[in-house]
Amino acid sequence: MARRWFSRASSFPLLAGLWGFAGPRQIHFLVTLALTFGVVYLQAYVFARSPNPWFHVDLTSILVVYVSVEHFLLGAFLRVLVAGLLMQSLSLAPSGFFPMYFIVALVSANVVSRYVVLHNLSSQFLTFAGIFLLKFVLLYVVLFKLGQNPDVWAFASASLPQFVVTTLLSVPAFSLLARLDSSFEFAATRDRRAELVENL
């Protein structure tokens, strides 16, 4: 029912007309941008307030990987940059960390998706796990550079719950995001991209 509503909403000419200038492509971009905002604020206002590390789900990283794999590069880059800048403005992490991490994640996800079929569950799982592991490595180097010299095992054990729960939730979240995308008349999936390129 939700899918029908979305596809009707995005293809209804009057709605596009009401928006003034937005066609299906623009509506899709704006909705995914709004989703980015929502995910970042959900992470800051709800998950981060929980003292239990098993509730520290890094939804933003999951969204970044999905966007990197399933969208055109320019659109993905813009969304990823917005997510990185939003996270940066809400966090005390050193300036530039999140844009850097998300751009590295974007490139890594793109490279992996060229050689690995990401609609297979196990390959999705391993790809997400690899990219989240990359985040902890980058974070560890930040702590080291700040002179904290954290113990590797202490850092790993403190980060483990977040890593496990985020990786476990990444696969169903990926499917949910794919369903949401498929509700739109315009969805820049890999197949569509190929179609559009052929028709140019």
Binding site: L90, S91, A93
Partner: peptide, 14 residues
């Protein structure tokens, strides 16, 4: 108190 650090690395609140 509005939110907390979404990086889960720093323990901070806004």
């Amino acid at each position: 108190v509005q939110s907390a650090d979404p990086s889960f690395l720093y323990r901070s609140i806004r």
